[in-house]
Amino acid sequence: MEPSSATVAAYSPCGSTAAVCRAVAEGTGLAWDERDLARGTRPEPVDPGTLVVLGAPVAGGAVPALGLERLGRVHTAFSPCVLVCAYGDRDPGHGLHDLEAIAPGLGLVPVAAVLAPVRHVMVPALGAGRPTADDLAAYRSFGAAVASALRDAGGLFDLAPPPLPPASCPRERLELGFTAECDPAACVGCGACAGACPAGCIPADEPYLTDTARCDGCMACIGVCPVRARSLSDPARLAAVRERCVAGWEGPHRPRLVMGA
């Protein structure tokens, strides 16, 4: 089978996951479009047979609940897909397995998978500068290989499912308990944080406020604040977590790219 087009469907609050997914789509040589599932809340129908690059980040060892809900807005029928799990160059947890579990309900048939080390949003020293130019080149080459395998296959189900690497932690998500907060004295009221928040927990007319009950600590708001008025709560505990993570780091990790035989 040969897909006529590709679609990037990524939940990517901070942008790294989407960058990886775009590189895979570019490598296929197919015309492709993109669905921003971190910002959009409407259903996302995809034409049957389209190659879908389905991506999400790992947080606390798992794809965030909001990410799974947003990915669940994609619906198609018998479409091949590449599963893309981005993680902070430390521990991918069971993120790929989370994506594999929801794929059938979306009408997707996994044919390939990517474990992509990216910059750790909470511990920026890990994976700094990733995905690099070399990383993106590898993802483009992999996209080309996936497209070639699909062209050579007699039918979608002639391709074996990708052999996913074992999950590296229990299935329960580790809740670190950090939420975003704002220094009202430093806030200039630009509203960039409200536009970036996938959970909608920052009011656009009062961007110095945060509904902490809904915040999952994705840090998208922190990354876009032009005056650094936003930060994670409990800075002393955050510093201790960062120190432990850096001390136990075994990176940098290489991208893992798998396809079924």
Rank of each mutant, 00 (worst) to 15 (best):
G29N: 06
G29R: 07
G29H: 08
L30H: 09
L30C: 12
A31L: 11
W32K: 07
D33Y: 06
D33G: 13
E34A: 13
E34N: 10
E34Q: 11
E34V: 09
E34I: 11
R35H: 10
R35E: 15
R35M: 14
D36W: 08
D36N: 15
L37S: 03
A38N: 05
A38T: 02
A38G: 10
R39W: 12
R39A: 15
R39E: 10
G40T: 13
T41E: 12
T41C: 13
T41F: 14
R42V: 09
R42W: 12
P43N: 11
E44D: 13
P45I: 07
P45N: 12
P45V: 04
P45H: 07
D47G: 15
G49Q: 00
G49H: 01
T50S: 06
L51Y: 05
L51N: 15
V52S: 00
V52L: 02
V52K: 05
V53I: 12
V53D: 05
V53H: 04
L54W: 06
L54Q: 11
L54E: 08
L54R: 08
G60H: 05
G60N: 06
G61R: 11
A62Q: 14
V63M: 06
P64S: 10
P64L: 07
L66W: 04
G67Q: 05
G67F: 06
E69D: 12
R70H: 13
L71C: 05
L71W: 04
G72T: 02
G72D: 01
G72P: 01
R73A: 15
R73W: 14
R73F: 11
V74K: 10
V74M: 12
V74A: 13
V74R: 08
V74D: 14
H75L: 15
T76A: 06
A77Q: 12
S79M: 00
P80V: 03
L83P: 02
L83N: 01
V84A: 03
V84I: 02
A86G: 04
A86P: 00
Y87H: 11
G88Y: 01
G88V: 00
D89F: 00
D89Y: 00
R90E: 07
R90S: 08
D91R: 08
D91T: 06
P92E: 00
P92C: 05
G93W: 03
G93F: 04
H94M: 15
G95T: 00
G95W: 04
G95R: 03
G95N: 00
